[in-house]
Design a binder for these strands. Structure first.
Length: 304
RNA sequence: GGCGUCUUGGCCGAGUGGCUAGGCAGAGGUCUGCAAAACCUUCUACAGCGGUUCGAAUCCGCUAGACGCCU
């Protein structure tokens, strides 16, 4: 029988987790999380990770499986997720993936090219180069090392620039020489479903959820990781704002309103990203589970 | 009641006669290892009316509103 991955996408706070649990129960499936922040075990509250109870109701993977101190990225996730999906498929042809990190979702579904490991020292040096010599300097260098990628990436974006350069420098080959995702094939079929709602409603839910997080102890959680604030894993909505409060730069009230604002913006970007996948079937957030399951069953039948 | 100061886009804020500040918020978007990140694009406003002038957010008058001082 064919193997399936049911991918659930949508903006933060719309109810993806809840739906994933119901579907997991229905199909007796395991859940793969594609949320780049729920990976971290130290920050469950601010990342709206599933609760212990929810985690018990279905077998989850990639929730709290690493530490904020670990270095993790799409590449690692892509590799790990593929291995796990294959394993999970042994016991059940239907596996569910849920999460709001668009790049991570796409990596699993569409693949992502493999790049050699790059010495982190190179990135540090490039960052220094950026801050001392300016972005034009990096642009000129990339144009020299890989004119192809220079023309296709957003050269105003320092992160993109540095990534392309670190690959060029770390491998002595142009970054673009590693790109050939077209060949990528998974051994499972993907059914992508999305949850949507009116912008206003999404925003209301986000605002309420942030207030709830504060009540549930987000401050203590943020305080407990405060000393690690410079880690990339903590460049995360809900923490970076509270760090400013701890510094005395912001009032708590302002920090909270910034968390809400930044979460709203995040949700907006998620919608933009997920709308790119034309194969995604969109459902209103309050569609009954039965209706969604009915759609999925049809898809599973059609495809098998 | 008198005198004075002020009134710029959703908000903040520069601009003293011709050359559409800027920031924030919002909206739209980008995306192959930092992705809850990073980056890009975008919103022609000068309280109202009249006057001066080739030309007014900028000068003059009146009206309205806000603030301050005086009686």
């Amino acid at each position: 029988m064919d193997k399936y991955l049911i991918s659930i996408v949508g903006p933060t706070g719309i109810g993806k987790t809840n739906l994933s649990l119901k579907l997991a129960t229905n199909y007796n499936s395991e859940i793969i999380s594609s949320d780049s922040r729920q990976f971290y075990k130290e920050i469950p509250i601010g990342t709206a990770a599933p609760t212990l109870l929810e985690l018990k109701s279905a077998k989850h993977h990639f929730i709290h499986h690493i530490s904020i101190k670990d270095n993790y990225n799409v590449g690692s996730f892509h590799k790990d997720a593929n291995i796990q999906i294959e394993k999970s498929h042994y016991s059940n042809p239907v596996v569910i993936m849920v999460g709001g990190s668009g790049l991570y979702v796409d990596a699993v579904i569409n693949g992502i090219d493999e790049f050699p490991k790059i010495d982190p020292e190179i990135r540090s040096l490039l960052k220094i180069q950026l801050s001392t010599l300016g972005i034009e300097n990096l642009q000129i260098e990339l144009k020299k090392l890989d004119p192809n990628i220079y023309n296709s990436i957003d050269i105003k974006n320092p992160q993109r620039l540095i990534r392309a350069l670190e690959v060029c420098k770390g491998t002595n080959k142009p970054y673009s020489s590693f790109l050939n995702r077209e060949k990528y094939k998974t051994n499972f079929k993907t059914i992508s479903i999305g949850l949507k709602a009116e912008r206003r409603l999404i925003y209301d839910r986000i605002n309420n959820r942030v207030d709830k997080m504060i009540k549930n102890g987000l401050l203590d959680e943020a305080r407990s990781v405060f000393k690690y604030r410079d880690l990339n894993s903590l460049n995360t909505v809900g923490y970076k704002e509270l760090f400013n409060y701890f510094d005395g730069k912001w009032t708590l009230e302002y920090a909270v309103s910034e968390i809400k604002k930044n979460t709203r913006r995040y949700a907006k970007r998620q919608v933009t990203w997920f709308n790119k996948n034309k194969k995604t079937k969109w459902f209103e957030h309050d569609t009954t589970t039965a209706e969604i399951i009915s759609y999925l069953n049809d898809e599973l039948l059609i495809n098998s």
